[in-house]
Amino acid sequence: MTAAARKPVVYATYPDLAGKRVVITGGGTGIGAAIVDAFVKQGAHVVFLDIQDEASKALEQSLAGAQCPPRYIRCDLTELESVGAVFQQIERELGPVEVLVNNAANDNRHQVEDVTAKYWDDSLAVNLRHQFFCAQAVAPGMKAAGGGVILNFGSISWHLALGKLSLYMTAKAAIEGLTRGLARDLGADGIRVNCIIPGSIKTPRQMALWHSPEDEAAILAAQCLHERVEPDDVAALTLFLASGNAARCSGRDYFVDAGWYGS
Rank of each mutant, 00 (worst) to 15 (best):
residue 219 I to P: 00
residue 91 E to K: 03
residue 121 D to T: 13
residue 9 V to D: 02
residue 151 L to S: 03
residue 142 M to T: 08
residue 22 V to C: 06
residue 137 A to W: 00
residue 23 V to I: 07
residue 107 D to G: 02
residue 76 D to N: 15
residue 19 G to Q: 08
residue 54 E to R: 14
residue 257 D to R: 09
residue 18 A to G: 02
residue 248 R to D: 12
residue 1 M to D: 10
residue 137 A to E: 04
residue 184 R to T: 07
residue 60 E to P: 02
residue 174 A to P: 03
residue 14 Y to M: 02
residue 137 A to Q: 05
residue 245 N to Q: 15
residue 39 F to E: 01
residue 17 L to W: 05
residue 49 L to C: 01
residue 206 Q to A: 15
residue 195 C to S: 13
residue 137 A to C: 01
residue 204 P to E: 14
residue 73 I to H: 11
residue 112 V to M: 13
residue 70 P to A: 13
residue 49 L to Q: 00
residue 249 C to E: 12
residue 39 F to S: 06
residue 256 V to H: 03
residue 165 L to M: 12
residue 194 N to R: 08
residue 66 A to Y: 00
residue 148 G to C: 08
residue 10 V to L: 14
residue 44 A to K: 09
residue 180 R to N: 02
residue 74 R to T: 13
residue 83 V to H: 06
residue 177 G to S: 15
residue 205 R to L: 11
residue 123 S to R: 09
residue 244 G to V: 05
residue 23 V to D: 00
residue 8 P to Q: 14
residue 68 C to H: 15
residue 175 I to G: 08
residue 21 R to W: 06
residue 39 F to C: 05
residue 130 H to L: 03
residue 162 L to M: 15
residue 146 G to A: 06
residue 188 A to E: 07
residue 34 A to V: 03
residue 79 E to C: 11
residue 90 I to C: 00
residue 164 K to V: 05
residue 228 R to E: 06
residue 233 D to M: 07
residue 170 T to Y: 02
residue 44 A to D: 09
residue 129 R to Q: 06
residue 158 W to P: 04
residue 86 V to W: 00
residue 167 L to R: 03
residue 139 A to S: 10
residue 118 K to M: 05
residue 64 A to S: 14
residue 248 R to C: 11
residue 148 G to Y: 04
residue 41 K to A: 15
residue 170 T to M: 14
residue 105 A to H: 12
residue 113 E to I: 08
residue 77 L to S: 09
residue 166 S to Q: 10
residue 237 L to T: 02
